[in-house]
Design a protein around this nucleic acid. Structure first.
Lengths: 187, 187, 187, 187
DNA sequence: GATGAATGAGCTTTCATTCAT
DNA sequence: CATGAATGAAAGCTCATTCAT
């Protein structure tokens, strides 16, 4: 519904532009162009608005996971695994980075949300471990490194906007090189 | 002074145990065993208390950086660089992980704090790049990968307490293997 | 009309089950199975709904009064007066005691309603005083005692559900004994 | 403390003058001459203010009960019992009748408060039954009638300010006559 | 310095009521 | 007539901060 979307969009914009401390229900209503009463018609309390924003981001990650999982079906080579993984996280973290910077650094997750995040990570690791079966002595540990690194570094460069010394293209290429080296080089 | 330490300790414990939302000045005073008036005797406002906690963590990181920098003086081998880097971040992130989990995921940094964090990261990267001079075509980019990865993964495993599939020892060893492979393997 | 009755019934049930604090127009509409707009089609405001419920209770009391008045026509004996009085109030207070408990202890009456209650009481007292003419030196005062006592005690036992030490039958019989003693005993 | 008393006094005056619907915390603070913050320094919420007012009234009733109980010690005659009972309730109901009219007709009691009221009534009935031992076949039932009637009628005349046909003195005297007749007359 | 009662701006939330459809 | 999304005044409550003692 238009009102719900306006409220979510207003809340997301306030979060992205001014952070969690600036988020209050009266301001959300004003920016959404609706009355405060309408906010509470659709959301039981302030937290529920942020929850819905978080849920949508999580749902996007879950959808992306399902799509990428298909790309790892027919006996993928290490180079494929790395490419799919990095491009998946880059796509995820390209979405509204200002907003997600605030969500990840200022908003305390509920236990349920933490568990959903953990489940998504665990599923991703499990799927990658399966694809790795022939390339690693301990696929689960190897997959954990690959997934956590691809997630954390793409987050840092795209979301935290930590000063990257080169273009996004070069950085992600370098990231792939590192993960590929890890998978393929004999120590 | 004892009062200042008591206030900082109380605030840190509240943050670690109950999060940013539960932190308020009256509670800090009560837990510190001082009056609310005394809190404002030593800190101009609530934010200054958190700032001091953050500053101390940053100062610890800066000191750790200076110590580790010495270990990279006499033409270190890749294996030394990786070891020093990983052990440095592990040491940093082992300190009061509950508190720093909250600081990194719930407390919005001021611009000045963001700049100080960025400066510490930049200095670390610069120092590693220097040590890498002979091992990389583009020492700065390579160092960025090494530093960001060592930081992010040790943070994730020690601070975020994200489910690790193996002991901290095994995980950090694996991390070193990945960074070492990145440094030494021909593609 | 069915809608009006549904609204009144819903409001009465909410009052009886959850009290005045839980009564709100949106809930009334939902429980009545009509839209909030329809509630305002038939009642100018929330108070009018409660007023109608109160009015019906008062009308019932007034009707009961008229019926009982007939029973006191042909020179009634004290025993008849007492019996008619007590049985009248018991009948009145047996009606939906939960609802009337709330109405009498949580709902502020308007001035008009207070006056109507006072008028009903005054009429009842006047009628009883008339019937008492031969049995009392000051029929008006005596009637006031009889009426107020019969009303208050039956209310307390049936409506307030104050712990009664015996069955309703025994208690009301005892009440009649007290009123009869008052009317007939020489001090 | 002065602040607490000012808050209770302000709340009591608002209740007595304007009723429950007009009672709000900002008005209480204003009438008490303190800030809204001070109200919440001493009372956890609005309800607690009213609770304290109710508790004080109940405590007054309990104290009055203890005093009156002494007057019923040495084998009292029916006339003494009736006098003590009526004068006790009259004293209780003379205290701030406007306030207590609102408390009894507009404020929903909590379960705990209802139980405390019930306990006071039960104790009073028990004490009167004891004093009646020789004057009644069923002292408990007789005492219930006496206590409930003395309470209800004095409440009605003094608190509800229901139009009384004669002076308070005459009415209470008449009430004593009724109770005495009930105790002493053979049917 | 130390104290803690007092302050009040500002936030969340409720719910009686309206009115375009 | 019926609907129900939308309204917004008004209330409860929090907590960073002050200042007289």
């Amino acid at each position: 519904m238009a009102t719900v979307e306006a409220i979510l969009e207003a809340a997301a914009r306030i979060l992205a532009e001014a952070g969690w401390a600036a988020l209050n229900t009266n301001l959300i209503a004003k920016r959404a162009g609706v009355s405060i009463g309408s906010v509470y018609e659709y959301f039981p309390d302030k937290r529920a608005i942020v929850d819905e924003i978080l849920n949508r981001h999580l749902a996007r990650g879950e959808a992306l996971f399902r799509e990428s999982a298909n790309d790892l079906n027919s006996g993928p080579q290490p180079v494929d695994i790395v490419r799919v993984l990095v491009s998946g996280f880059v796509t995820l973290h390209r979405d509204d980075p200002h907003l997600h910077q605030v969500l990840s650094s200022e908003v305390a997750l509920t236990l349920e949300q933490k568990m959903r995040v953990a489940a998504l990570r665990a599923n991703t690791i499990k799927r990658v471990a399966l694809a790795l079966a022939d390339d690693s002595d301990n696929p689960h540990i190897t997959a954990t490194l690959l997934v956590d690194t691809a997630d954390a570094l793409s987050h840092r460069w795209l979301v935290d906007a930590a000063g990257t010394p080169a273009s996004e293209k070069i950085m992600t290429n370098e990231l792939q090189k590192m993960l590929y080296a890890y998978l393929t080089c004999e120590p």
